[in-house]
């Protein structure tokens, strides 16, 4: 037991279990960066921790694979194939929306609501009364009336979802969240509203949407194909940003990178898997990645990154940190 230069077992456990204090984590990061002995000692702790969790990791892999298989064998998409085709041929408006909101949300009291919750690790596929198709991401809730009114269609979302909305003249489709109101003008778009992040973003795949900051629509922005915006929660302002090419990866399972700087790759991984990841040296962010991933786990993608750029990973309080080997 070479504890003199190494990491004390209780501290190692705290770091690995995400229980370490900020100052402990700070000291840990510094020593990892500057002390080779410390790094190799830490690698041992990590190895033991991983080994002790293999069974659990395998159980999770198995869950993921089972979900994937169910989507293959029981997919409502399969049943809807004819309809989907008809919709796209008719150039129906396609609305793509992903939102994550603080989980507490109260529906309007006067509407008879249907509430659908996607829990566990399965994405729910729904068809609304007007033919709108919805893929509801895990840990998300959608609330909508059993029948839409004659003048508008309105749904409330908490979490993340994909909508394909059939255009109906005179009956616009609205998606409401705590902070934004998205009006469908005939389009495909994506909205993300993670509770933990400083901004809410909207990205348009095709057509146009109108985004209102605040439900009363004090400030609004018209977005077109290939455009995106961020709503800054702090300043309550809307700002235009370019479209992230992988904004749909949460739904499609497909990630594509073409000469993409790692800074952007890591951001994409964070938003897709909702797992924090960073690197501890500026030069790492500048590396360029090309290639694609299809239905891969976060762990797998990170392993590929490490192998490709000769990096190593450690987990510091739940944040995956990439370092030079």
């Amino acid at each position: 037991m070479k504890q003199t230069t190494g990491i004390d077992a209780a501290l190692a456990a705290r770091l690995l279990a995400g229980e370490a204090s900020e100052s402990e984590k700070e000291r840990h990061r510094n020593r990892l960066a500057g002390d080779a002995d410390y790094r190799s000692d830490w690698a041992q702790w990590l190895w033991v921790w991983d080994a002790a969790g293999t069974e659990e990791a395998e159980r999770r892999d198995c869950d993921v694979a089972w979900t994937r298989l169910q989507r293959k064998t029981h997919s409502p998409l399969f049943l809807l194939k004819g309809r989907t085709l008809a919709l796209s041929l008719a150039a129906a408006a396609v609305l793509l929306l992903a939102l994550l909101l603080p989980l507490l949300w109260t529906p309007a009291a006067n509407q008879p609501e249907l509430l659908v919750t996607a829990g566990g690790d399965e994405i729910q596929e729904l068809v609304l009364e007007d033919g709108t198709r919805v893929s509801l991401n895990t840990n998300s809730r959608l609330s909508y009336p059993e029948e839409f009114g004659p003048h508008e269609r309105r749904v409330f979302l908490s979490g993340e979802a994909w909508f394909e909305v059939e255009a109906q003249g005179g009956r616009p489709f609205y998606v409401e969240t705590d902070e934004l109101l998205v009006k469908v003008v005939g389009t495909a778009f994506n909205v993300r509203s993670w509770p933990e992040s400083a901004g809410v973003s909207v990205e348009v795949g095709s057509g146009r949407v109108e985004v209102h900051a605040g439900l009363e629509g004090a400030e609004h922005v018209l977005l077109q194909k290939g455009e995106g915006l961020v709503f800054h929660r702090g300043t309550q302002h809307l700002e235009h940003v370019p479209l992230n090419p992988n904004y749909l990866a949460w739904k499609t399972g497909q990630l594509y990178f073409e000469d993409t700087p790692l800074s952007e790759v890591l951001q994409t991984l964070e938003r897709t898997y909702r797992r924090p990841i960073t690197a501890d040296h500026p030069s790492i962010f500048e590396e360029k990645l090309g290639g694609s991933f299809s239905h891969q786990s976060f762990e797998y993608v990170v392993e590929v990154l490490c192998a490709t750029f000769q990096l190593e990973q450690s987990t510091v309080n739940g944040v995956v940190v990439l370092s030079r080997q």
Binding site: D8, A9, A10, L11, A12, A13, R14, L16, A17, G18, E19, W45, V48, W49, A52, G53, E55, E56
Partner: peptide
């Protein structure tokens, strides 16, 4: 902690122990 992913405080509450005890036991186990 390792398999169920519970926080030390949650473990301590469930088992009626102090967080310090949980910490020490985790260190010894590891």
């Amino acid at each position: 902690s390792r398999l169920d992913g519970l926080k030390y405080r949650e473990i301590a509450t469930q088992l009626g122990l102090s967080v310090k005890t949980v910490e020490a036991q985790m260190g010894k186990a590891l």
